[in-house]
Design a protein around this nucleic acid. Structure first.
Lengths: 233, 233
DNA sequence: GTAGTTTAGTGAACACTGTTCACTTTTCGA
DNA sequence: TCGAAAAGTGAACAGTGTTCACTAAACTAC
């Protein structure tokens, strides 16, 4: 296996890259529709007209392959959130859009999003080596999601919109949990969207807006202007 | 298979029940520690000194067995939430306890809770047959979780603590999503609890309290600023 | 151009998995 | 005591991820 210098410069490298991408593409196609259960190495091999063992020349294991799908998805998710948070619009609108984009992108690829949160962390009581893990975490895609939210909270506080008494990291965790929860429930609970009276066509978007408003209201500084119905229309 | 008359009245019935419960117990023990991956029929059979095929005299499939574990867990979860919500204490304290109990019980059995939300719902556009599914859903354990929250919101509104303009079902969905999100992130994100400066020993409980307070603040009756009024600099 | 060394790719096999089924053994009511 | 029903079993089926000895092709160095 050649590892030095950009892989796609030599013919062999380009060829290898092409095959690798065809594997990813086939995997993506199956995974998006049927998730991990529908994705078997043998089926994948058949789809790209290679033998099953050939795939192991490109990926160490099925897990590594799926990890790549998850990473790519999460990267796209972060990109979209980042874009909608850096638009040139009033802060609260941007904040709302951020949250909505997160949930909509997540629910649009349910298997990807669910898989991205499928590994269960063993809780070792040893909290002393936290700083190292904290830094490691922050370089992760999930860490990036988290820090986007921290930035958002801090910006809101600087603008006097959000309560300064709130610990930004703590508030960001709350926001993330809330977003994640909505995405997960929409994905996993049958008819979650229609769980309200008179649910219309855009009930998911409506609900996310409602939810975002609720969170923002919880984060807002106490003394505020006049009362207004915050329900999604 | 005998099905009429209480199963545990005849000696054979009692025996059958005992074996069935020993299967469940063994499954529970393995599942709690290693989840679905660690739970194989053959391993289970070995643990209770039966042949693998014997298990199929008691359960139609592995899925049915695990469903029973999930149902039992969710029932206990609902019991605990119900208990802490019906205590004789001030409303807001009870509400907070409700939320805290949900998350703590969920995270205490990560594999159970994760598994309970592991099936991905296929979104059929046909929303017309909703009412039927709605009723079916409400008899579910998840439906019960939802209705507990709806009741809570309505009680808060009746007491004048929560904003009456909020649609109770919508607010309940928000609450549920938030709780679910916290539980899931604690379970699936490494060191989620220590994701804040100066995280102490009870940081999980601390965070849940923080989160609950944030949600309650969002639900409380109070004036709110309209988004468009506040411009970003 | 040829020799030697990586690399690509393969088929058979291993150790699993959930599940089925023909089969024996035990249990129990009539 | 007899016959039916249930309990329990071992072998097999079809599937999985993965490994490994092996061939065939491609690249490097002389």
């Amino acid at each position: 296996m050649q590892t030095d210098i950009p892989v796609d410069k030599t013919p062999a490298g380009r060829r290898r890259k092409r095959v690798r991408e065809s594997i990813i593409a086939a995997a993506e196609k199956v995974f998006a529709r049927e998730g991990e259960d529908g994705l078997s190495i043998r089926r994948l091999a058949e789809e790209i007209d290679y033998s099953p063992s050939a795939i192991y020349k490109y990926f160490e294991s099925k897990e590594e392959l799926i990890d790549e799908l998850k990473e790519a998805f999460f990267e796209r998710l972060m990109d979209r959130v980042d874009t909608s948070s850096s638009a040139d619009r009033p802060f609260l609108d941007r904040a709302r859009d951020c949250l909505i984009t997160y949930v909509e992108t997540a629910t649009h690829r349910p298997y990807h999003y669910a898989a991205a949160f499928s590994s269960i962390q063993q809780k070792d009581e040893c909290a002393s080596l936290m700083p190292k893990d904290w830094e490691a975490f922050m370089t992760t895609n999930k860490g990036k999601a988290f820090s986007i939210l921290v930035d958002m909270v801090e910006e809101g506080q600087a603008l006097g919109v959000f309560d300064n008494a709130l610990e930004p990291a703590q508030a960001a965790k709350s926001l993330w949990a809330s977003l994640h929860g909505v995405a997960q429930l929409v994905i996993h609970v049958p008819h979650f969207e229609q769980l309200i009276p008179d649910a219309g066509k855009d009930s998911t978007t409506d609900f996310i807006t409602f939810h975002a408003n609720l969170l923002i209201r919880g984060l807002q500084a106490q003394p505020v202007a006049e009362a207004k119905d915050i329900q999604a229309g």
